[in-house]
Amino acid sequence: MYGFLIAIGILLLLSIVWMVYRIQTLVTVVKGSDKKIASGSNKVNAFLFVAFMVVFGALMTWYSIKEFDNYQLPIGSEHGVITDRLFWITMAVTGVVFIITHILLFWFPYKYQYDEKRKAAFFPHNNRLEVIWTVVPAVVLALLVISGWKAWSDITGPAPENAHVVEIMGYQFAWEVRYPGMDNVLGEYDYRLINATNVSGVDFSDKNSFDDFNTPIVVIPKGEPVIFKIRARDVLHSVFAPHMRLKMDAVPGMPTRFWFTATKTTEEMRAELNDPEFEYEIACTEVCGRGHFSMRKVITVVEPAEYKKWLAEQKPYIVNNPSLVADLPTELKELAEISISENK
Protein backbone atom coordinates (compact mmCIF):
# COMPACT_ATOMS: atom_id res chain seq x y z
CA MET A 1 0.00 0.00 0.00
CA TYR A 2 2.71 2.43 1.04
CA GLY A 3 4.77 1.49 -1.97
CA PHE A 4 1.80 2.22 -4.21
CA LEU A 5 1.23 5.66 -2.68
CA ILE A 6 4.91 6.51 -2.95
CA ALA A 7 4.94 5.44 -6.58
CA ILE A 8 1.93 7.65 -7.35
CA GLY A 9 3.55 10.55 -5.51
CA ILE A 10 6.75 10.19 -7.49
CA LEU A 11 4.79 9.94 -10.71
CA LEU A 12 2.90 13.13 -9.91
CA LEU A 13 6.07 14.93 -8.99
CA LEU A 14 7.74 13.86 -12.20
CA SER A 15 4.85 14.98 -14.33
CA ILE A 16 4.83 18.39 -12.64
CA VAL A 17 8.56 18.76 -13.25
CA TRP A 18 7.95 17.71 -16.83
CA MET A 19 5.25 20.34 -17.33
CA VAL A 20 7.30 23.11 -15.78
CA TYR A 21 10.13 22.12 -18.06
CA ARG A 22 7.97 22.22 -21.20
CA ILE A 23 6.41 25.54 -20.32
CA GLN A 24 9.78 27.00 -19.50
CA THR A 25 11.18 25.92 -22.87
CA LEU A 26 8.21 27.36 -24.72
CA VAL A 27 8.51 30.65 -22.88
CA THR A 28 12.18 31.03 -23.78
CA VAL A 29 11.38 30.33 -27.40
CA VAL A 30 8.53 32.85 -27.40
CA LYS A 31 10.63 35.50 -25.71
CA GLY A 32 13.42 34.74 -28.12
CA SER A 33 15.94 34.66 -25.29
CA ASP A 34 17.35 31.44 -26.65
CA LYS A 35 18.76 33.53 -29.48
CA LYS A 36 20.55 35.93 -27.21
CA ILE A 37 24.20 35.41 -26.40
CA ALA A 38 23.66 35.65 -22.68
CA SER A 39 20.17 35.27 -21.31
CA GLY A 40 18.79 36.60 -18.03
CA SER A 41 20.13 33.48 -16.35
CA ASN A 42 23.59 34.92 -16.72
CA LYS A 43 22.91 37.42 -13.95
CA VAL A 44 21.38 34.79 -11.75
CA ASN A 45 24.33 32.45 -12.11
CA ALA A 46 26.79 35.26 -11.49
CA PHE A 47 24.94 36.20 -8.34
CA LEU A 48 24.71 32.62 -7.16
CA PHE A 49 28.50 32.28 -7.15
CA VAL A 50 28.79 35.16 -4.72
CA ALA A 51 25.92 33.85 -2.65
CA PHE A 52 27.48 30.42 -2.55
CA MET A 53 30.76 31.89 -1.38
CA VAL A 54 29.17 33.89 1.41
CA VAL A 55 26.93 31.11 2.67
CA PHE A 56 29.50 28.38 2.41
CA GLY A 57 32.27 30.53 3.86
CA ALA A 58 30.08 31.34 6.84
CA LEU A 59 29.13 27.72 7.38
CA MET A 60 32.72 26.60 7.16
CA THR A 61 33.97 29.21 9.61
CA TRP A 62 31.19 28.54 12.06
CA TYR A 63 31.60 24.78 12.00
CA SER A 64 35.40 24.88 12.14
CA ILE A 65 35.32 27.01 15.25
CA LYS A 66 32.46 25.25 16.96
CA GLU A 67 33.89 21.76 16.44
CA PHE A 68 37.53 22.52 17.06
CA ASP A 69 37.80 20.56 20.30
CA ASN A 70 36.12 17.59 18.72
CA TYR A 71 38.26 17.14 15.66
CA GLN A 72 41.51 18.30 17.22
CA LEU A 73 42.40 15.15 19.15
CA PRO A 74 44.44 15.69 22.32
CA ILE A 75 48.13 15.00 21.78
CA GLY A 76 49.84 12.30 23.80
CA SER A 77 53.37 12.20 22.39
CA GLU A 78 56.37 14.48 22.01
CA HIS A 79 56.60 14.33 18.24
CA GLY A 80 52.84 14.78 18.02
CA VAL A 81 53.27 18.34 19.24
CA ILE A 82 55.68 18.98 16.38
CA THR A 83 53.63 17.37 13.62
CA ASP A 84 50.51 19.12 14.83
CA ARG A 85 52.30 22.43 14.75
CA LEU A 86 53.35 21.70 11.17
CA PHE A 87 49.79 20.77 10.39
CA TRP A 88 48.41 24.04 11.67
CA ILE A 89 51.13 26.11 10.03
CA THR A 90 50.28 24.46 6.74
CA MET A 91 46.63 25.09 7.48
CA ALA A 92 47.32 28.79 7.96
CA VAL A 93 49.33 29.09 4.75
CA THR A 94 46.94 27.07 2.61
CA GLY A 95 43.96 28.67 4.33
CA VAL A 96 45.06 32.11 3.16
CA VAL A 97 45.53 30.82 -0.38
CA PHE A 98 42.20 29.04 -0.24
CA ILE A 99 40.36 32.18 0.80
CA ILE A 100 42.05 34.57 -1.61
CA THR A 101 41.74 32.32 -4.65
CA HIS A 102 38.12 31.56 -3.90
CA ILE A 103 37.22 35.19 -3.43
CA LEU A 104 38.70 35.90 -6.84
CA LEU A 105 37.15 32.82 -8.41
CA PHE A 106 33.64 33.66 -7.25
CA TRP A 107 33.80 37.41 -7.43
CA PHE A 108 35.13 37.61 -11.01
CA PRO A 109 32.03 35.90 -12.41
CA TYR A 110 29.92 38.55 -10.77
CA LYS A 111 32.13 41.46 -11.72
CA TYR A 112 32.81 40.43 -15.30
CA GLN A 113 29.50 38.90 -16.31
CA TYR A 114 28.60 39.34 -19.94
CA ASP A 115 27.76 42.78 -21.20
CA GLU A 116 27.16 43.33 -24.91
CA LYS A 117 28.62 46.78 -24.75
CA ARG A 118 31.91 45.68 -23.28
CA LYS A 119 34.75 43.80 -24.83
CA ALA A 120 36.98 41.47 -22.85
CA ALA A 121 40.59 42.53 -22.38
CA PHE A 122 43.00 40.87 -24.79
CA PHE A 123 45.58 39.77 -22.24
CA PRO A 124 47.22 36.59 -23.47
CA HIS A 125 50.35 36.46 -21.36
CA ASN A 126 52.65 38.25 -19.02
CA ASN A 127 55.94 36.69 -18.13
CA ARG A 128 56.42 38.73 -15.00
CA LEU A 129 53.21 37.43 -13.51
CA GLU A 130 54.06 33.85 -14.43
CA VAL A 131 57.45 34.12 -12.81
CA ILE A 132 55.98 35.62 -9.67
CA TRP A 133 53.45 32.90 -9.22
CA THR A 134 55.95 30.20 -9.92
CA VAL A 135 58.58 31.51 -7.55
CA VAL A 136 56.39 32.52 -4.63
CA PRO A 137 54.72 29.12 -4.25
CA ALA A 138 58.09 27.46 -4.75
CA VAL A 139 59.62 29.40 -1.89
CA VAL A 140 56.67 28.88 0.43
CA LEU A 141 56.55 25.19 -0.35
CA ALA A 142 60.30 24.87 0.13
CA LEU A 143 59.95 26.35 3.62
CA LEU A 144 57.15 23.96 4.45
CA VAL A 145 59.04 20.97 3.13
CA ILE A 146 62.22 21.79 4.94
CA SER A 147 60.45 22.04 8.27
CA GLY A 148 58.58 18.85 7.47
CA TRP A 149 61.77 17.11 6.51
CA LYS A 150 63.45 18.02 9.80
CA ALA A 151 60.54 16.67 11.77
CA TRP A 152 60.37 13.54 9.65
CA SER A 153 64.07 12.81 10.06
CA ASP A 154 63.84 13.17 13.82
CA ILE A 155 60.77 11.00 14.08
CA THR A 156 62.10 8.24 11.86
CA GLY A 157 65.67 8.43 13.12
CA PRO A 158 67.15 5.64 15.24
CA ALA A 159 65.47 5.14 18.59
CA PRO A 160 67.46 6.00 21.72
CA GLU A 161 69.39 3.05 23.21
CA ASN A 162 67.27 2.92 26.31
CA ALA A 163 63.92 2.79 24.51
CA HIS A 164 61.48 0.29 25.95
CA VAL A 165 60.71 -2.37 23.38
CA VAL A 166 57.17 -3.53 22.69
CA GLU A 167 56.29 -5.88 19.90
CA ILE A 168 52.92 -5.44 18.20
CA MET A 169 51.83 -8.08 15.77
CA GLY A 170 48.72 -7.69 13.64
CA TYR A 171 46.64 -10.64 12.57
CA GLN A 172 43.07 -11.13 11.42
CA PHE A 173 41.53 -9.46 13.44
CA ALA A 174 43.42 -8.37 16.53
CA TRP A 175 46.78 -7.28 17.83
CA GLU A 176 49.14 -9.45 19.80
CA VAL A 177 51.41 -7.60 22.19
CA ARG A 178 54.71 -9.05 23.34
CA TYR A 179 57.18 -7.58 25.83
CA PRO A 180 60.86 -8.52 25.97
CA GLY A 181 60.85 -8.79 29.77
CA MET A 182 63.64 -7.59 32.06
CA ASP A 183 66.41 -7.94 29.46
CA ASN A 184 64.59 -5.60 27.04
CA VAL A 185 65.53 -7.96 24.20
CA LEU A 186 62.82 -9.81 22.32
CA GLY A 187 63.40 -13.46 21.58
CA GLU A 188 63.59 -14.58 17.96
CA TYR A 189 60.45 -15.66 16.16
CA ASP A 190 59.57 -17.72 13.15
CA TYR A 191 56.18 -17.83 11.49
CA ARG A 192 56.45 -21.59 11.11
CA LEU A 193 56.37 -21.98 14.89
CA ILE A 194 52.95 -20.37 15.17
CA ASN A 195 50.21 -22.51 16.68
CA ALA A 196 47.32 -22.13 19.07
CA THR A 197 49.52 -21.81 22.16
CA ASN A 198 52.23 -19.74 20.50
CA VAL A 199 50.34 -17.15 18.48
CA SER A 200 53.36 -14.97 17.72
CA GLY A 201 55.61 -17.86 16.75
CA VAL A 202 58.18 -17.11 19.46
CA ASP A 203 61.28 -19.22 19.15
CA PHE A 204 61.88 -20.57 22.67
CA SER A 205 65.24 -22.02 21.76
CA ASP A 206 66.44 -18.41 21.92
CA LYS A 207 67.30 -17.63 25.53
CA ASN A 208 66.13 -14.04 25.10
CA SER A 209 62.61 -15.30 24.83
CA PHE A 210 62.54 -16.93 28.26
CA ASP A 211 61.37 -13.77 29.95
CA ASP A 212 59.14 -12.57 27.09
CA PHE A 213 55.50 -12.15 28.01
CA ASN A 214 52.29 -10.98 26.41
CA THR A 215 49.58 -8.71 27.75
CA PRO A 216 46.05 -7.80 26.77
CA ILE A 217 46.87 -4.08 26.78
CA VAL A 218 49.92 -2.06 25.90
CA VAL A 219 51.41 -0.47 29.00
CA ILE A 220 54.13 2.14 28.56
CA PRO A 221 55.85 4.65 30.82
CA LYS A 222 55.38 8.36 30.44
CA GLY A 223 58.37 10.50 29.47
CA GLU A 224 60.58 7.61 28.37
CA PRO A 225 61.15 6.54 24.78
CA VAL A 226 59.25 3.48 23.64
CA ILE A 227 59.81 1.60 20.43
CA PHE A 228 57.05 -0.38 18.79
CA LYS A 229 58.40 -3.28 16.78
CA ILE A 230 55.67 -4.00 14.33
CA ARG A 231 54.94 -7.05 12.23
CA ALA A 232 52.04 -8.94 10.73
CA ARG A 233 51.41 -12.60 10.38
CA ASP A 234 48.82 -12.87 7.60
CA VAL A 235 48.00 -9.75 5.59
CA LEU A 236 48.89 -6.08 5.83
CA HIS A 237 47.68 -4.16 8.84
CA SER A 238 48.64 -0.76 10.13
CA VAL A 239 49.17 0.33 13.70
CA PHE A 240 47.44 3.65 14.24
CA ALA A 241 47.50 5.35 17.63
CA PRO A 242 45.69 8.60 16.85
CA HIS A 243 46.49 10.42 20.08
CA MET A 244 50.15 9.51 19.73
CA ARG A 245 50.19 10.71 16.10
CA LEU A 246 51.65 7.34 15.32
CA LYS A 247 51.08 5.16 12.30
CA MET A 248 53.09 2.38 10.74
CA ASP A 249 52.13 -0.51 8.50
CA ALA A 250 52.48 -4.06 9.71
CA VAL A 251 53.86 -6.13 6.86
CA PRO A 252 54.20 -9.91 6.76
CA GLY A 253 57.83 -10.78 6.25
CA MET A 254 59.12 -7.26 6.79
CA PRO A 255 59.32 -5.96 10.36
CA THR A 256 58.78 -2.22 10.80
CA ARG A 257 59.11 0.07 13.80
CA PHE A 258 58.06 3.40 15.24
CA TRP A 259 59.47 5.04 18.34
CA PHE A 260 57.96 7.83 20.39
CA THR A 261 57.73 9.29 23.86
CA ALA A 262 54.41 9.62 25.62
CA THR A 263 53.86 12.91 27.40
CA LYS A 264 50.80 12.33 29.54
CA THR A 265 49.62 9.35 31.52
CA THR A 266 46.16 8.03 30.89
CA GLU A 267 45.14 9.41 34.30
CA GLU A 268 46.45 12.86 33.49
CA MET A 269 44.64 12.83 30.19
CA ARG A 270 41.42 11.79 31.88
CA ALA A 271 41.70 14.66 34.31
CA GLU A 272 42.57 17.12 31.57
CA LEU A 273 39.68 16.13 29.35
CA ASN A 274 37.35 15.67 32.27
CA ASP A 275 36.50 12.26 30.81
CA PRO A 276 36.98 9.38 33.25
CA GLU A 277 36.50 6.86 30.45
CA PHE A 278 39.31 8.12 28.23
CA GLU A 279 41.73 5.56 26.82
CA TYR A 280 44.56 5.80 24.33
CA GLU A 281 43.64 3.48 21.51
CA ILE A 282 45.21 1.59 18.63
CA ALA A 283 43.22 1.02 15.47
CA CYS A 284 44.05 -0.67 12.19
CA THR A 285 44.34 1.56 9.11
CA GLU A 286 45.24 -0.86 6.37
CA VAL A 287 42.30 -2.77 5.00
CA CYS A 288 42.73 -6.37 6.12
CA GLY A 289 39.36 -8.04 5.76
CA ARG A 290 36.09 -8.55 7.52
CA GLY A 291 37.10 -7.36 10.97
CA HIS A 292 39.28 -4.45 9.86
CA PHE A 293 37.08 -1.98 11.70
CA SER A 294 37.30 -3.75 15.04
CA MET A 295 41.01 -4.25 15.75
CA ARG A 296 41.09 -2.27 18.97
CA LYS A 297 43.87 -2.26 21.49
CA VAL A 298 44.25 0.01 24.49
CA ILE A 299 47.47 1.76 25.41
CA THR A 300 47.80 2.67 29.07
CA VAL A 301 50.42 5.27 29.85
CA VAL A 302 51.65 5.23 33.45
CA GLU A 303 54.33 6.92 35.55
CA PRO A 304 57.77 5.27 35.15
CA ALA A 305 57.75 3.94 38.71
CA GLU A 306 54.40 2.35 38.22
CA TYR A 307 55.63 0.89 34.95
CA LYS A 308 58.57 -0.78 36.71
CA LYS A 309 56.22 -2.27 39.21
CA TRP A 310 53.88 -3.52 36.52
CA LEU A 311 56.75 -5.01 34.56
CA ALA A 312 57.92 -6.98 37.58
CA GLU A 313 54.48 -8.45 38.07
CA GLN A 314 54.17 -9.93 34.61
CA LYS A 315 54.57 -13.67 34.09
CA PRO A 316 56.60 -14.85 31.07
CA TYR A 317 55.06 -17.18 28.50
CA ILE A 318 57.02 -20.13 29.74
CA VAL A 319 55.87 -19.63 33.31
CA ASN A 320 52.25 -19.56 32.30
CA ASN A 321 52.74 -22.50 29.98
CA PRO A 322 55.87 -24.60 30.74
CA SER A 323 54.98 -27.00 27.94
CA LEU A 324 56.35 -24.39 25.52
CA VAL A 325 59.89 -25.41 26.48
CA ALA A 326 59.20 -29.10 26.92
CA ASP A 327 60.83 -30.06 23.64
CA LEU A 328 64.03 -28.05 24.00
CA PRO A 329 67.45 -29.77 24.19
CA THR A 330 68.38 -30.57 27.78
CA GLU A 331 70.91 -27.79 28.31
CA LEU A 332 68.51 -25.09 27.20
CA LYS A 333 65.70 -26.71 29.05
CA GLU A 334 67.59 -26.51 32.30
CA LEU A 335 68.24 -22.83 31.72
CA ALA A 336 64.58 -22.34 30.97
CA GLU A 337 63.58 -24.10 34.13
CA ILE A 338 65.88 -21.92 36.19
CA SER A 339 64.31 -18.91 34.59
CA ILE A 340 60.85 -20.26 35.33
CA SER A 341 61.59 -20.78 39.00
CA GLU A 342 63.12 -17.29 39.26
CA ASN A 343 60.03 -15.70 37.78
CA LYS A 344 57.40 -17.61 39.74
Binding site: I37, A38, S41, N42, N45, A46, T101, L104, L105, F108, P109, Y112, Q113, Y114, D115, R118, K119, A120, A121, F123, L129, E130, W133
Partner: peptide
Amino acid sequence: KVFNYLTTLWRGNLIF
Protein backbone atom coordinates in the same frame (compact mmCIF):
# COMPACT_ATOMS: atom_id res chain seq x y z
CA LYS B 1 47.51 26.51 -13.70
CA VAL B 2 45.09 27.80 -11.10
CA PHE B 3 46.48 31.32 -11.27
CA ASN B 4 46.27 31.23 -15.04
CA TYR B 5 42.62 30.23 -14.92
CA LEU B 6 41.88 33.05 -12.52
CA THR B 7 43.64 35.56 -14.72
CA THR B 8 41.70 34.32 -17.72
CA LEU B 9 38.47 35.16 -15.92
CA TRP B 10 39.78 38.55 -14.89
CA ARG B 11 38.38 41.31 -17.13
CA GLY B 12 36.68 38.78 -19.32
CA ASN B 13 33.16 39.00 -20.63
CA LEU B 14 31.75 35.91 -19.03
CA ILE B 15 28.92 33.86 -20.42
CA PHE B 16 27.65 31.24 -18.03
